[in-house]
Nucleic acid binder design. Structure first.
Lengths: 192, 192
DNA sequence: ATCGATAGTATCGAGTCGAAAGTATTGCAA
DNA sequence: TTGCAATACTTTCGACTCGATACTATCGAT
């Protein structure tokens, strides 16, 4: 058996083990994934379409999942911007709290150094698979080729809008790796 | 965000990306996981209970999944041994073929060396989570503390039965890491 | 013979999922 | 301005997962 194949098997098993842990919080895996994404995405990226792209699911499925989060009081639906077809789902304070609770993550006998290595390798795997199927990268705003930093504050050259500081460290659906001057392409600053 | 948390997120996304690939084969993720397990488990470990343990699912759920595999002609149900309550699901030739087709796994821009590192790290993660919740290890037969090798052939000291050669490289539900003399605890021989 | 434990199944309700059909809105082009 | 295709999202459908619960058959020990 090749290492690649065993990796697929291990990922499968890990995600199952991880999923059962989250079920304890009253959420099923799909809801937990969506909640996690909403907690980390910027205001342009909290739409059903973006969630669908991120989760590799259809819009129909995601529409239902988001409605169920809203029904549980974890997210709030609202208009998404100037385009009146667009909807945006923002987490409620309860939703934020649950998302943070999910941060209490799996036990691991790994050193910090090993954890970082695993993370970097997984990032590369994700990037490879995304590229292979022409998907979006969903990287952090500040690592995007459209990101512009100045003394007045950050700015998105694609959408032509000013950005709040905290938005530059959130996930953006429009993210394009390109050449970043202010940060590494993966959005990692190197030493935390 | 800690590396541990990002790992959880990445795993989530990877398993989704991977899952959509398998859906193309006409199987949903649960069926694919079960099929994959059946293809790699020895004759003592292809029971509904073992599959349930391995997949961290309930027996009821797994019972249905296995029935659906049988309905598709990918697995065959039969008596499991001397215990007349027990059932065993063996893959049919078609099932074997599909399982092998699923081996054609994700694209990855990683070197062989990096793949092995990821695999080893994931193994450790799985082991940590399994231990944390007191689950079974589901390691390979030959790496088990009950495994005995002799000139007449391999033997299981727990079940007290002779083992065919190919069975010693299969997954066993009774596997206990213990101290292995003939192989590393993870069942890896080191250099392939 | 009895009785508790175990292996597996059946059924229920909530929910996922992809597919397909539908609505509202946008934006482009004639 | 009208027309129309593309887009954002929702709704519905059928197959399926999943945990929970209740059930049957069998085992094993007393």
């Amino acid at each position: 058996m090749t290492a690649a194949y065993e990796i697929a098997s291990l990922l499968d098993r890990l995600s199952r083990l991880h999923g059962t842990g989250r079920r304890a919080a009253g959420l099923n895996p799909a809801q937990a994934s969506a909640l996690d994404y909403l907690a980390r995405a910027n205001r342009f990226s909290r739409t059903p379409s973006a969630v669908a792209d991120y989760l590799s699911a259809t819009r129909g499925t995601v529409s239902q999942t988001l409605k169920s989060l809203a029904a549980k009081g974890l997210a709030q639906e609202g208009p998404g911007g100037s385009d009146r077809r667009s909807r945006r789902y923002d987490l409620t304070p309860q939703g934020q709290a649950v998302a943070e609770a999910l941060d209490a993550v799996p036990p691991a006998d790994l050193t910090d150094r090993q954890m970082e290595d695993v993370r970097d390798a997984l990032r590369q795997l994700v990037r490879g698979m995304i590229e292979a199927r022409g998907g979006r990268s969903f990287g952090l705003c500040r690592s995007c080729r459209h990101h512009r930093a100045s003394v007045q504050g950050a700015h998105c050259a694609l959408l032509d809008v000013p950005l709040r500081d905290e938005e530059t460290t959130q996930i953006c659906q429009e993210h394009e790796p390109g050449i970043a001057k202010n940060a590494r392409p993966d959005g990692c600053t190197g030493r935390g």
